[in-house]
């Protein structure tokens, strides 16, 4: 049997995973969608004009 890794490592793995899954990635998603919206709005103002039918 392998020597178990120290409990601290395992704890930090859980922490990292939960932080990433429930905070890091959702925030990133929201930020990317907002960025997409801003870019689209900017393009509408400068080039496209208001969205067509």
């Amino acid at each position: 049997m392998q020597e178990p890794t120290p409990p601290s490592r395992s704890n930090s793995d859980w922490k990292k995973m939960l932080l990433l899954a429930f905070i890091g990635l959702p925030v990133t998603m929201a930020a990317l969608i907002a960025l997409y919206g801003f870019v689209l709005w900017g393009l509408q103002v400068m080039f496209f004009g208001p969205p067509g039918a």
Binding site: I33, A34, Y36, G37, F38, L40, W41, Q44, P51
Partner: peptide, 13 residues
């Protein structure tokens, strides 16, 4: 606007 992209753009606006 009801379409996703236009809606997001409007929300940022």
């Amino acid at each position: 606007p009801h379409d996703f992209s236009d809606k997001i753009a409007r929300k940022m606006k």
